[in-house]
């Protein structure tokens, strides 16, 4: 299911950027910051930007934060404020909480209080730059030609069918670059688990199996079609 409603708390460089991207992708974004100057600066950039104290549960509740699909906590200055806000978001039953973190300790603490996902913006940016330096063509392809490389879960309707039979290239102008397959294992502790095997590039006769993920290159305007397939 596609997420539509987001709250972004803390509008520093990272928070402001994520709010802008989410809105560009068609999401409804409620952007919140405690600093009136930041809010004033950004008020023309987003549909909904408010000056508010996110450490107050009543304020969050009145703003409708309890109804969002996901909240992004991007507080750079105070680790304590981030932890407290996460607790309030949990209390408001926000289904997905994402937080910007700076250290492993910070990550550990936030996960303990209920953050579902963490991001290390500096580390992610560094990784992206390293990739770009080693493989200059990668991001250029993504940015300039309207093509995206995406990983999607194989819809149930694909299972048991071959790559050739699905005719993805003809129907959706999409090329299957790789299939990520889950191979069931029982680990040393007698636990059920799986190992991921990458089949790249798959042959036309390769049949999709339950649990597969597909890496596709396809035009931007067709990507959503795959995301909504059952």
């Amino acid at each position: 299911m596609k997420m539509k409603n987001f709250a972004v708390i803390g509008l520093g460089r990272f928070g402001a950027a994520i709010a802008r991207f989410l809105e560009k992708e068609g999401g409804e974004v409620l952007a919140i910051d405690i600093n009136p100057e930041i809010v004033r600066e950004l008020e023309h950039d987003y549909t909904s930007v408010v000056e508010a104290d996110a450490t107050d549960i009543e304020t969050l509740s009145n703003l409708g934060v309890g109804d969002v699909d996901a909240a992004i906590v991007s507080i750079g200055t105070s680790m304590e404020a981030g932890i407290f806000i996460t607790l309030l978001l949990k209390e408001l039953k926000v289904p997905l909480i994402v937080a910007k973190v700076r250290s492993k300790l910070h990550e550990k603490v936030l996960k303990k209080v209920g953050v579902n996902l963490v991001v290390y913006p500096e580390e992610d940016a560094a990784q992206h730059l390293a990739k770009k330096l080693y493989w200059p063509g990668y991001s250029e392809l993504e940015m300039t030609t309207g093509l995206s490389m995406v990983e999607i879960r194989a819809p149930k309707s694909f299972i048991g069918k071959t790559v050739a039979k699905l005719k993805l290239r003809e129907k959706y102008k999409a090329n299957v670059v790789a299939i990520k397959r889950k191979n069931p294992i029982i680990d040393e502790n007698e636990q059920t688990d799986y190992e991921e095997k990458i089949i790249a590039p798959p042959v036309a006769e390769e049949k999709f199996e339950a649990g597969d993920s597909i890496v596709l290159v396809c035009s931007d305007d067709k990507v959503d079609k795959f995301k909504d397939m059952k």
Binding site: T192, A210, G211
Partner: peptide
């Protein structure tokens, strides 16, 4: 919890996300 975990992994590998 261990059986529930095995059930969860089975759902995941069966595409019942």
């Amino acid at each position: 919890a261990e059986v529930l975990y095995s059930l969860a992994v089975s759902y995941e590998t069966n595409s019942d996300y």
